[in-house]
Write a protein that binds this DNA or RNA. Structure first.
Lengths: 148, 148, 148, 148
DNA sequence: TTTT
DNA sequence: TTTT
């Protein structure tokens, strides 16, 4: 039966992409994305809850991720849930879930703290001059196919 | 930073709900939902790929799940990704991901095989007389609040 | 600025598709889809609210719609909002909004009322033998590319 | 039949909110949101396509919109399609479609053009000091319920 | 472990 | 005009 498996995330990157160039021109990028929700508990105190997502991008998208995505940037992502299952050395069934990204849109990053000491973490600080803001669909994306 | 963490699934239940009644009127239901995608590979052969999702419902929704959901039924689900992290006995960091259901809609099940031998698995067979078709939002849902 | 314009619908077809074959192998299909929500008002009465959506499909998808979709069928749809604007004869600005379908999944229809008099409306009655249940993505979809 | 009618938008406000305070503490805010997609046509030229959406927010959300939303701001929106139908003076059936907002998240705005002449349009220019970044759900939202 |  |  045909089904639907769709994930929509909007959050910030916890680190620069980890990119591996495989044989045969294949490229895979792994990202850590944090989505935070805030609410007030019964006592009226503001509570923050952060969920970390493991994202996986392939080929054309992985190359764009490698080139443009940086720790701290804000990202809108569409994808699907994909899990690996295996047996560990103890013979236990194990499962790891990640998000296979199908398209993403760069939204910006944390604001530039003008005047304050710059961190040296390499994190993206929102200078939009150097970042193309675009949507990156899946598919055989040569750089020539990019809309920017 | 406020973010978005949204999951949309449409698939079939692999088993009847597992429901636990906890102290203080709390109820939790766990479901296994399969989403299947079909495509043709390069050789033109039809390939099927099934992803299994662990769903978690609480309280009012859990009670409805307990009452109406059955193995084999088709479900539309909205929710969010939620993971538990812990250390196992070996001291390894472990993570388990599930879908916290925020609303769901019962769509039906596999059609009643009239004339063919009925399975005795207790699986739902699509007899719509006994199933209310409705959308079940989150919240303090007494049975009185249900729209059917 | 790259943005997101996404619509997700799950409802029933109010009529058979209206299909036009245009010059140059172009095909367009128009569908009417009803999405119904039910709730209880303050007095506790069950209220139903139906929204009608104008869907537009092109080419490969339009051909599949023409071949398989029927009045009454239940459909899951992903697409985007697209509006036409023009001036009418009185010089008033007019706007018409429709959903450009990017993918859809056939879910079934109202159950076959075995034994009861069949309506002669040509409406789909859920006999799954004749209907492939599949997801239909956008793109240059020859029938050969279909996963069923 | 319970259905799904869901819209997800990410775009920029074309104008400040238009807010009307009605009798009985009811408030309604209307917003114009632009979603832009960019692609390359067959000749390889970059093409931009902007869709304008009419958003409607009520009560608690409308009050927050009135207080914080400004022309130019970037917004993530979830809602549903809602159309009004009526007959005009000529007796023609007319239909107007809008998005009833169920939750939204403020993402920022167009970057502050430091050094360049400021426009006097009252548009939001991304100074994050004065803007709480949060998600605003539907419901009876007193200011006290806001998570910021 | 579901469904077609 | 659909569906329950």
């Amino acid at each position: 039966m045909a089904g639907v498996n769709k994930v929509i995330l909007l959050g910030n990157l916890g680190a620069d992409p980890e990119v591996k160039h495989l044989e045969g021109d294949k490229v895979v990028a792994n990202l850590r994305l944090a989505t935070t929700e805030a609410y007030k508990d019964k006592s009226g105190n503001r509570v923050e809850n952060t969920e970390w997502h493991d994202l996986e991008l392939w080929d054309g998208q992985a190359r764009i991720a490698e080139q443009y995505l940086k720790k701290g940037m804000q990202l809108y992502v569409e994808g699907k849930i994909k899990s690996d299952t295996w047996q560990d050395e103890q013979g236990n069934n194990r499962k790891r879930t990640k998000i296979r990204v199908l398209s993403f849109t760069m939204l910006g990053g944390r604001p530039d703290n003008a005047g304050s000491p710059q961190s040296n973490t390499g994190a993206y600080t929102g200078s939009t001059q150097s970042m193309p803001s675009t949507s990156v669909p899946a598919g055989p994306a040569d750089d020539d196919d990019l809309p920017f």
